[in-house]
């Protein structure tokens, strides 16, 4: 799977800055500050990969994930959240998330995750 474009969905501007700093420069990124904005961006930006936060005002990460998967079941979505409760982690995996990572992200883990997804079928 070829990855060029990555969409970051998180309501916290700081969280988006941190995540962007973890993603190598060669990727093109776009930021969305809510679940709704993220869904709009899917059509315009056509990302190859999505990083998604769970706790957001309005449409939360669970619902956003569900809707993304309905629109494009093959689009890989990586959850990046502070919510580490067992129930939340297992729920996002059931909903079809590629993986669930904990905040704060580290550049090494983000890079490895992108590599893993690119290397998969």
């Amino acid at each position: 799977m070829k990855i060029n474009k990555i969409l970051l969905i998180d309501d916290s501007p700081i969280a988006r800055i941190i995540l962007k700093k973890c993603i190598p420069m060669e990727y093109e990124t776009m930021e969305a500050d809510s679940g709704e904005a993220g869904l709009d961006a899917l059509n315009v930006f056509k990302p190859d990969l999505v990083f998604l936060d769970l706790t957001m005002p309005g449409m939360d990460g669970f619902e956003t994930l569900e809707r993304i998967k309905k629109l494009d079941a093959d689009l890989p979505v990586v959850i990046l959240s502070a919510d580490r409760q067992k129930a939340s982690v297992s729920r996002v995996l059931e909903l079809g998330a590629w993986n669930s990572l904990k905040k704060p992200p580290s550049p090494a883990i983000i890079r490895q995750t992108i590599k893993d997804i690119a290397g998969s079928q």
Partner: peptide, 23 residues
């Protein structure tokens, strides 16, 4: 404002991990 936003994100991370451990 930026510092308060960073602090807010730190709290978000801290409390998320606190809830998992408190569980």
């Amino acid at each position: 404002v930026t510092e308060l936003l960073i602090l807010q994100e730190l709290m978000n991370i801290a409390f998320g991990s606190a809830s998992a451990d408190l569980e």
